[in-house]
Design a protein around this nucleic acid. Sequence first.
DNA 1: ATGACGATTTACT
DNA 2: GTAAATCGTCATA
Length: 228
Amino acid sequence: MPKAGTSTARSEPQPLPPRSALPRRFFAADPEILARKLLGCTLVRILADGTRLGGVIVETEAYLGAIDRAAHTFGGRRTARNESMWGHPGIAYVYFTYGMHWCMNISAGALGDPVAVLLRALRPTEGLERMRELRAAGGRRKTPLADTELCAGPARLCQALAIDRSLDGLDLTAAGSPLFVERRKQDRVSDDQVARGARIGIAYAGDWAARPLRFAVRGSPFVSRPRL
DNA sequence: ATGACGATTTACT
DNA sequence: GTAAATCGTCATA
């Protein structure tokens, strides 16, 4: 075996080979297309202390902008809060809701087109212990958190990955970003594994409430309730 | 300045 | 199944 001349001497074993963040062109798609493509991709969060948290995206929702009554940008509304939806594809739109929760979107389409994809659930794959701590956050809990409850919901996944206002507007495609998306062959989701249905929590949206703009991996126990 | 409302989660009946 | 928690944001005045 050729040990000679190997300059590959690795002093530190890497838990995983280095992977590159998906580039802007991946996100520059119609939100419906992007919502589908994001299934099976991995959301990665690097904490300030270097801890790496991550999970495979198993549920998303598309928000179609000015025409979409359920979107924060319906009617072309442009406010301080939703400014990130108007920005470059591949930036984070993180908003606060119900007086206590954060939710994360990825801006889609083109610059100036206020469309986005809401991340609703992950299958956690890295840093589960730290996620449990983040999800515990103060309040003691009646029952211990199952892995399937860690990131099953838009606010839950943000709490588990320490995503809040400080990450709003962050460019997920920038070098060294503490939040980005990867794609691995092994996690590829085929079309017959994709379930579609009505979006959650938008009953006020009239005709748009019934549109099948929610996407999920069929049969995944990591998807939020109600299951598709 | 004020009031109404959430792209939710949790606990409880 | 129902209800409470909890407050930033935005439209209206």
